[in-house]
Simulated assay, not measured.
Amino acid sequence: MSKKFLTLLATAAVFALPAFAQEKVKVGVSGGDGEAIWQEVKELAKKDGIDVQIVVFNDYLLPNEALNAGDLDANAFQHKPFLENQIKAKGYKIVPIADTVVAPIGLYSNKVKTVAELKNGATVGIPNDPSNGGRALLLLQAQGLVKLKDGVGILPTVLDITENKRDLKLRELDAAQLPRSLQDLDAAVINTNYALQANLNPSKDAIAIEAAKGNPYGNIIAVREGDKDKPVFKKLVASYQNETIRAFILDKFKGAQIPVF
Rank of each mutant, 00 (worst) to 15 (best):
Q143T: 05
R135T: 07
S131A: 15
L139N: 01
G133M: 02
P130Q: 08
T157E: 14
K119T: 12
L138I: 14
Q141F: 07
L145C: 02
V124C: 04
G151I: 06
G133T: 01
A136C: 07
I154K: 12
L155N: 14
V146Q: 08
P127G: 05
L148T: 01
V152A: 10
V124F: 08
R135I: 06
G121W: 04
P127S: 07
G121C: 02
L139E: 01
V124A: 08
S131Q: 05
D129P: 00
A136L: 05
K149M: 11
D129R: 00
N120V: 14
S131D: 11
L137M: 11
L138D: 08
I154G: 09
G153K: 09
A142K: 15
S131K: 02
A122Q: 10
P156I: 11
G133W: 03
Q141N: 01
G121S: 03
G125Q: 10
L140M: 14
N132Y: 13
L139K: 08
G121N: 00
G153Q: 11
L148I: 04
L140Q: 02
T123G: 05
L138Q: 09
G134R: 00
G125H: 07
V146C: 09
G151V: 08
G144T: 04
N128L: 03
T157Y: 10
G134I: 00
V124S: 07
Q143V: 01
K149F: 12
S131H: 02
G125Y: 12
Q143E: 15
K147I: 05
L137S: 07
P127D: 04
G133A: 03
L137G: 00
G125R: 13
K119G: 03
K119A: 15
N128P: 02
N132S: 11
A122M: 12
N120A: 14
R135W: 06
D150M: 06
S131P: 08
I154C: 03
K149N: 14
G121Y: 05
V146T: 02
G151R: 05
K147M: 13
P156K: 02
L145K: 09
P156G: 11
P130N: 10
N128E: 13
V124Q: 03
V146L: 15
L155M: 15
N128D: 15
K119C: 04
T157M: 10
T157N: 10
Q141E: 15
K119W: 07
A136T: 03
L139V: 06
T157P: 09
Q141D: 07
N132V: 00
K119H: 14
A122S: 15
G134N: 01
I154M: 12
L148M: 07
V146P: 00
I154L: 15
R135E: 11
R135C: 01
N132W: 07
D129I: 09
A122R: 12
G144R: 04
S131C: 05
I154R: 09
D129T: 12
V146Y: 08
K119I: 05
G144E: 08
I154T: 13
P156A: 08
G134E: 03
K147G: 13
G121E: 03
K147Q: 15
G144M: 10
K147H: 06
N132D: 14
K147W: 07
V146I: 15
G153W: 13
G153N: 11
T123H: 11
N128G: 02
P127Y: 07
A122V: 06
N128K: 13
G125K: 10
G144V: 06
Q141H: 01
Q141M: 12
L145S: 02
K147D: 13
A136N: 03
G144L: 09
V124P: 01
V152I: 14
T123M: 12
G121H: 03
